[in-house]
Amino acid sequence: MAPVDTADRMEHPDAPHGTSVPSPHHVVNYLRIFQILVALTLLTVTVAFLPIHNELINVVVALAIAGVKAAFVARYFMHLKFEGKLIYTILFVPLSLAVILTIALIPDIALGRGTDFNDMVGWFEKLHHGLVG
């Protein structure tokens, strides 16, 4: 943690002082992060147009790229890389609850107790083929 910048306080007596004036010691090349995020966006769109018919692969790849993008935004734009334990502790709670919530909901899909539209399985396939019978 940086010491309070008393020189700044003397120069600008009215300015807010203390550590709540964030002192940018960490230099982040924001433009580089932006370029990486644009590249990853183009990648995920490209993958979406590839003729991959496996739903699971599509979802896993899309979420993996989104996860990497989110990590870049959080670590560099949100300065998470430079934060102390307290912020990580605050973040740990909702992120673990997010995992628990998602896992807790899985049996709903697995048991097929989704929605009434389950009755409509095959509806669109038949529609596409316009088949009789």
């Binding site: 709670v93 997010a98 709903d108 899909i109 097929g112 989704g114 389950n118 509806w123 669109f124 396939e125």
Partner: peptide, 24 residues
């Protein structure tokens, strides 16, 4: 942190509903 929970809840619902009506 509270916003994360909020969005996880509605995104989780979306995933469940999508799983239940995949073709739709």
């Amino acid at each position: 942190a509270s916003e994360i929970m909020f969005f996880v809840a509605i995104l989780g619902s979306y995933v469940i509903l999508r799983g239940g009506s995949h073709d739709l």
